[in-house]
Design a protein around this nucleic acid. Structure first.
Lengths: 221, 221
DNA sequence: GAAACCGTTTCACCAGGAGAAACAATGTCA
DNA sequence: TGACATTGTTTCTCCTGGTGAAACGGTTTC
């Protein structure tokens, strides 16, 4: 009886999951420890991933994420469309608040920072596009986890990371589906003072504006 | 006797290869036609890819590239490091030439546009990050295919696309390995006039400058 | 209302992948 | 210098589990 999924593929993808911002290089043995698979198995799986450019391997045998993902990344969600739509809003939010503005989408039981404009102040929340964070913790996390009613701004302080505060609002498309979360974040000491009077109103203003511009066909995935 | 690669994994990756800028949505049957695999096979492979977030599937059964690749993309090569290094140079080149500036890396028998700053003029070469182009054709393509001696600027006109001209120079690390190609491109009519006097010298100037800044550990993959 | 087309389910067969152990090539320490 | 540990690689047997083909049920088309 055929399964409904393919184990070998899932193992290969599990290996890819080991790579992260903090850990972007693996030797064979390290991958074996991280995944629990046999080295011979990993060797075969990684050879296929390497053949398609999803990982590279240098002369010392160290594995890294390869260029093929860079090719696919712009196709995720709706490629440049999302960027053209959201980026200008992030820039406005960043300039108006002087804090880091970002747009998160849900990815299973995590959330991914798809776009961000880092604040310009020396002390700021420095965020990278593509980082994967837990659902449920942090303002944007709770919004994407459906813990916040539509149209309401969630705020958090030190929830996911000590000293970091944030505010976020859900972005819904015309059919009422949650497309992502628009967020502002910065150091608690400064952020909390201005949150009520400035950051929350900003999101209440720009969130619905973004929703109004949201194209019917765009799913930020 | 065990193979040295895993067939099921390669089939899954072949399915991902079907997606491109021009074609970012597939129904099951379309994928079957594009890949030649049986529909039942595709259903299983895609279920695994979907489970890990590499593709998504909407209520109508349409497949799209999923958010997991957005998570991995910043890890490719050396993530933000490459961007922080090359982006400022692209901006300078773009401003000095008024044409589109880009940075390509090799990916097997193709090249990928990793970073770009599009020109600001109305008639311009509009390029997207992540596009995959053939090796061997176009100035950057020939550079990455080792058809141009180190330090020399390659020029092309209408080679890959009619009406499009470009100039490119190879970027080598301290060990003399080719890391990528720095390129300028624009509409032939305008570009060719200024190429000899402005664009080629600009690349001769910025190419070596980038090489001097290139960190020992950075491999753009 | 038949034909065409779609996505999905089922199942027998056997290719091919997992697992384990053996092996080779370095690296490390006494 | 030699023993031992650690790394990546190869080999081989067994049997899982993936492929391929056909059948199924729903929807659209004409």
């Amino acid at each position: 009886m055929a399964q409904r999924r393919v184990e070998a593929v899932e193992r290969a993808l599990t290996l890819l999951e080991a790579f992260s911002q903090e850990r972007r290089e693996f030797s064979l043995t390290e991958l074996a420890n991280a995944s629990g698979f046999y080295k011979s198995t990993i060797l075969r799986l990684m050879a296929s991933l390497e053949h398609f450019g999803y990982v590279t391997r240098d002369e010392r045998g160290i594995y890294r994420v390869g260029p093929a993902v860079s090719r696919l990344a712009p196709l995720a969600g709706d490629g440049p469309q999302l960027e053209n739509l959201v980026r200008p809003i992030l820039e406005s939010l960043r300039d108006a608040s002087e804090e880091t503005a970002s747009f998160y989408v849900r990815d299973g039981d995590h959330r991914i920072c798809r776009l961000r404009e880092n604040g310009r102040l020396e002390v700021r929340h420095h965020l990278e596009e593509g980082v994967r964070l837990p659902l449920g913790r942090g303002a944007a996390g709770r919004v994407l986890n459906y813990e916040t009613p539509r149209g309401q701004v969630a705020v958090s302080s030190g929830e996911r990371q000590a000293g970091l505060s944030a505010a976020a609002i859900g972005i819904y498309n015309g059919e009422g589906e949650l497309m992502g979360a628009l967020a502002l974040s910065g150091p608690s000491e400064r952020f909390n003072l201005a949150a009520k009077d400035r950051h929350v109103p900003l999101l209440s203003q720009y969130g619905p504006r973004l929703e109004r511009q949201w194209p019917r066909a765009l799913r930020a995935s």
